[in-house]
Design a protein around this nucleic acid. Structure first.
Ligand SMILES: NC(=O)c1ccc[n+]([C@@H]2O[C@H](COP(=O)([O-])OP(=O)(O)OC[C@H]3O[C@@H](n4cnc5c(N)ncnc54)[C@H](O)[C@@H]3O)[C@@H](O)[C@H]2O)c1
Ligand SMILES: NC(=O)c1ccc[n+]([C@@H]2O[C@H](COP(=O)([O-])OP(=O)(O)OC[C@H]3O[C@@H](n4cnc5c(N)ncnc54)[C@H](O)[C@@H]3O)[C@@H](O)[C@H]2O)c1
Lengths: 212, 212
DNA sequence: GTCTCCTTGTGATTATTTTCACAATGTTAT
DNA sequence: ATAACATTGTGAAAATAATCACAAGGAGAC
């Protein structure tokens, strides 16, 4: 069960944030031991799926008892790469960018919003939720100075590709993209698409299946 | 190939919003015919996957030529249930709720934000992006009056379950939940979880795999 | 310490999804 | 009309994921 040799299924990785969520809640409630059945019930999955997923990371549980919440929480954070803090910049201080800048959930997961970038002169020089707003022209300079790694794209779709090009050039390693458009970037840049419309359309699809 | 008899794979349905995105872009550019290869390239998937997906809905393409953009767009909208307009309410007029209330992407997909609900007296009675803010106590009455179907939950996690209970009681049919918590609701209520933290943690995971 | 009970960890099985490869069938040029 | 060509639609094969069922092992009672 040497990790590194074992290939961890993509489907398993995609569920880790879910497990993190449930375990964080147990932790806050002061619960120190939970069974796979309990977690599974809370999350609406099967307990065998949870156990199988966790088994890829070695024997984390205690047979006959369950899983130690603190221990499992730590291990999942480690696997997700959350030990190291990451610095983000938000490009586009509009409605969504502003909301994200003030979102405490990011900070709580080791993600520090260090800068906002804008082209609107009215916003440049101000601070939003304590985060300074820089002109887009300073992207390159500030990226190096602040050690920025992840760019959050909350600019209009029409500007997104051009901004993505600038972001890549500035030295960012990853993009979290909220604009409803696919980006063309070099292979070595990680892109995570956050398509809120896709989410609600999935819901609409289920709704119309049921009700017409 | 009678639809209704054929079971459409979940994985296929989950990709339809993606196809919608690409086709909408082609449509705006005035392109009327595209090959599976072109679409696939833009989206970073294989052309055979696209063709297989579309094949579940019958012969939509033109052999030797490609797919008619307008025709395919219409069919996908139909399958996703977008012909019928849906009325939404946003519960929690905070940072995220405000951003969503003013998001034009919803309107563009037939989703009408008709109301915001709040407990903060300072916000009640005002309008945000043209949407009136009602007291949470009026949830039941306004749901019936306005014909609300989908509740968007943008309240703090601690309040989310209680609000979900109220939303169910008020007669909503579906919940689009942004609070980082799993909800307990009756079987017949559709819940779509929008976990932004999960998205960015997936990105962080990839990042730390690559860079450590 | 032994016995009973409980829950994990996992090989085997089944289901789902993706990829492959090519026949079918349309377009376009002449 | 016919030939040359392009692209779809789809069975079959391969890969991936989920579920099952139970042996293994640890906890707790006495
Ligand atoms: N508002 C939402 O709730 C929401 C939800 C999902 C997705 N989105 C997407 O997020 C993006 C932003 O949406 P929004 O509602 O916040 O729009 P917005 O108009 O409120 O904000 C966009 C901001 O980007 C700035 N901007 C424009 N071009 C720029 C550039 N080249 N460089 C830097 N800044 C630039 C504008 O000045 C503006 O402040 C859009 O692509 C939208 O589709 C928004
Ligand atoms: N801000 C973001 O970018 C962001 C991103 C992802 C997820 N979220 C989640 O969305 C939710 C809202 O986040 P936010 O940043 O907008 O918080 P916020 O504090 O800005 O807004 C919450 C709003 O809900 C209202 N509220 C509280 N209890 C209520 C109740 N019982 N009924 C109706 N309204 C009530 C508050 O008065 C406030 O206006 C949280 O669960 C958060 O985790 C936020």
């Amino acid at each position: 069960m040497e990790e590194g040799l074992v290939v961890i299924p993509k489907a398993t990785v995609s569920r880790l944030p879910l497990y993190l969520q449930a375990l964080t809640e147990y932790d806050h409630l002061g619960i120190t031991l939970v069974s796979s059945e309990e977690i599974a019930q809370k999350l609406g999955i099967t307990s065998s799926q949870l156990r199988k997923d966790l088994s890829y990371f070695g024997g984390l549980g205690i047979r006959g008892a369950g899983y130690d919440v603190a221990c499992l929480l730590g291990r999942i954070k480690e696997i997700l790469g959350m030990q190291k803090k990451r610095r983000l910049a938000i490009i586009g201080a509009g409605k969504l960018g502003t909301a994200l800048a003030g979102y405490r959930g990011l900070q709580q997961h080791g993600l520090e919003v260090k800068a906002l970038f804008e082209i609107d002169k009215g916003k440049i020089g101000t601070a939003i939720a304590g985060v300074p707003v820089y002109p887009l022209a300073e992207l390159h300079a500030q990226t190096a100075r602040l050690g920025l790694e992840i760019a959050v794209l909350t600019v209009p779709a029409a500007a997104a590709q051009k901004v993505a090009d600038l972001v890549v050039e500035a030295g960012f390693k990853a993009i979290w993209n909220f604009a409803p458009i696919r980006l063309e970037v070099p292979e070595n840049i990680i892109v995570q698409y956050e398509d809120l419309v896709a989410g609600v359309l999935t819901l609409v699809h289920h709704l119309s299946r049921k009700l017409g």
